[in-house]
Simulated assay, not measured.
Amino acid sequence: MASLNVYSVLVVLFLTCGAAMATKENEQIIKENNCETKMGLPCVLKAFTNIFETGSISNKCCAEVVVLGKVCHSALVKTALENPLFKDLVPATIIAKSIQTWNNYLALIYSPSPCS
Rank of each mutant, 00 (worst) to 15 (best):
S3G: 12
L4G: 00
L4N: 03
N5W: 10
N5H: 08
V6C: 03
V6K: 09
V6M: 01
V6A: 06
Y7M: 03
Y7D: 00
S8A: 04
S8D: 02
S8N: 06
V9S: 13
L10T: 01
L10C: 02
L10Y: 09
L10A: 03
V11L: 05
V12W: 03
V12M: 06
V12T: 10
V12S: 11
L13V: 09
L13T: 14
F14W: 14
F14V: 02
F14Y: 15
L15F: 02
L15G: 07
L15K: 15
L15Q: 15
L15R: 11
L15Y: 02
T16A: 08
T16S: 12
G18N: 12
G18P: 13
A19L: 07
A20K: 15
A20V: 15
A20Y: 12
A20M: 15
M21C: 11
M21N: 10
M21Y: 05
A22I: 04
A22E: 04
A22R: 06
T23N: 07
T23S: 15
K24E: 15
K24G: 14
K24M: 14
E25I: 11
E25C: 10
N26Y: 07
N26M: 05
N26P: 00
E27Y: 09
E27S: 13
Q28K: 12
Q28R: 11
Q28W: 05
I30K: 07
K31G: 01
K31E: 09
E32R: 10
E32Q: 07
E32M: 01
E32T: 02
E32D: 07
N34W: 01
N34R: 15
N34D: 14
N34A: 05
C35V: 02
C35T: 05
E36Y: 08
E36F: 09
E36K: 13
T37V: 04
T37E: 09
T37K: 12
T37H: 04
T37W: 00
K38P: 10
K38T: 12
K38H: 06
K38R: 15
G40T: 04
G40S: 08
G40Y: 01
G40M: 05
L41M: 15
P42S: 03
P42V: 01
P42H: 01
P42D: 00
C43K: 02
C43Q: 09
V44F: 13
V44M: 13
V44W: 13
V44K: 05
V44A: 14
V44Q: 10
L45V: 03
L45F: 07
